[in-house]
Simulated scan of single mutants.
Amino acid sequence: MTKIITLYNHKGGVSKTTTTYHLAYAFAEAMGMKVLVVDADPQCNLTELCLSRIIDALDVKEEEGETTTLPGSSVKDALWPRLEGERANVDVDGIVLTQFDEELPLFIFRGDIGLSEAEDRLSYAYSQRMTSDMHQKRTYVAVNDMLRRLGALHGFDVILVDVGPSAAALTRSFFLACDRFLVPVAPDRFNYQAIGSLSHILNKWITEHMQVVPDFQKLSLNVPTRAPVLRGIVMQRFQRHKGVAKAGFKVWIDRVRQRAVEELIPSLITASGAEGVAKHCLTEPLCAEIHDFASLAPMMLSNSKPVWRLTKEDTEWQGHVWEQRSAAMVEFRDRFFALAKLAIE
């Protein structure tokens, strides 16, 4: 059965999209899994990252006066007929996915700036979920139903969903459709604050959703029946000295960890029971530490590869510089492979 996973934090700038991208490769490379990434963020950063080479080629044609379009279906393309009431559910057979790596079973269900227009419809469906309005009930379950049937149709082992840094209806719909989630954070005071507000947001989302599950099941609607399970907090975007986080970052790493223990984890257990939090999180909520990519970041972006797949030819680094950077690449690979294993087990 397909496992649906998201990385969610309503605080932006935490490398959520970059980590989703690297996790997709980790699942495919380390575990031999067939992976779909879903760009449910109207900013479309994941689409740009996965399809950068295709986009570059299309941009050349645009410069030559040719009108071009991105390959495959967008999430908005698929959802819109359902949201408009033209269909009872999403036509998953009509969704065209794009493979973004020729060597690995990695596919993208691309984003669309216009997906933000779905906010009002999904918000209204949420407000009407307890009424007898069948149209709104079908809209409420549309995202979950679409992802579940899409995963089964194509035999995906994992679906990774990239949601926007918001607490609005679109993000809520995709979050509630997931089986499990990771919380990416950076070690600073604003992410410390975000853990506190995230505790309230997720508690409210889960509690209110679980209230309607029995009613939707009676109507044979494909509703998520369990709350997403927290698999851990991913600490990112910090600098190290001699292999450990610098003091200025360490203080916030410790504070974020403590706030997760005192607020986030108890709020999730209150909303969904002990099964809403992975057991390892009860003793250590930080499941991975991914330090700053530094000079590897622009190389990753310009070559459209995860950092550990960069070559000498890609970077043009030589000698001691290459030895240093290649050692860092191996470390990042091992960290992402371990994170993928923890997320899926």
Rank of each mutant, 00 (worst) to 15 (best):
D215A: 11
L23M: 09
R180H: 03
M299T: 10
Q324G: 09
T67H: 10
E66D: 09
G273R: 02
L83G: 03
K312W: 03
D91A: 09
A40D: 12
R226F: 04
G94T: 08
K218V: 07
K76D: 05
P228V: 12
P165R: 08
F238C: 02
T67A: 14
C50A: 15
L170M: 14
W317R: 04
A26L: 03
Q217R: 04
L36T: 00
R138E: 05
E102M: 04
C281F: 06
A194K: 02
W252N: 04
V158G: 14
I54A: 07
T315D: 00
Q258S: 07
F293P: 00
G65S: 12
A78H: 06
P228G: 10
D59Q: 07
A194M: 06
R240Y: 00
L198C: 10
E331W: 04
W322D: 01
T270V: 12
F175A: 07
W317E: 09
S116L: 08
V96K: 15
C178P: 08
M146V: 11
L7W: 06
T270Q: 15
T131I: 09
T69W: 08
A26W: 07
P306T: 07
V261S: 04
R226S: 15
W80M: 15
H200G: 10
S295P: 14
K34D: 00
G196C: 05
Y126F: 14
S132R: 13
G114V: 12
A28L: 05
L23P: 14
P81K: 04
S15E: 00
D254L: 11
R240D: 02
L221T: 10
G32W: 09
R309F: 14
V212G: 13
I201N: 03
L182R: 03
G243N: 03
V213D: 14
E284G: 05
V229A: 03
H135Q: 06
A142T: 07
Q217M: 07
K250Y: 04
T2F: 08
G72Q: 14
I159L: 12
C44R: 05
W317S: 10
A57F: 08
M134C: 05
P298A: 03
M299H: 08
E62N: 15
L264P: 09
T6S: 05
Q239K: 12
N9R: 00
I5T: 09
E62Y: 11
N144V: 01
D188S: 01
R87I: 02
D56P: 04
L202A: 08
D101Q: 08
Y126L: 10
Q128R: 13
L97M: 06
L264F: 03
M329Q: 15
S220K: 15
A152D: 09
T2E: 04
A125P: 06
R333G: 01
S52I: 01
A297T: 00
E117I: 10
P184M: 01
L153Y: 11
V163W: 14
K11N: 13
K76T: 10
K242Y: 09
V14E: 00
G276R: 07
P266N: 01
D93C: 03
D39V: 04
I95Y: 13
L286R: 02
P42F: 11
L301N: 13
E102L: 11
R53I: 11
L182E: 08
R240C: 06
A125D: 06
N144F: 08
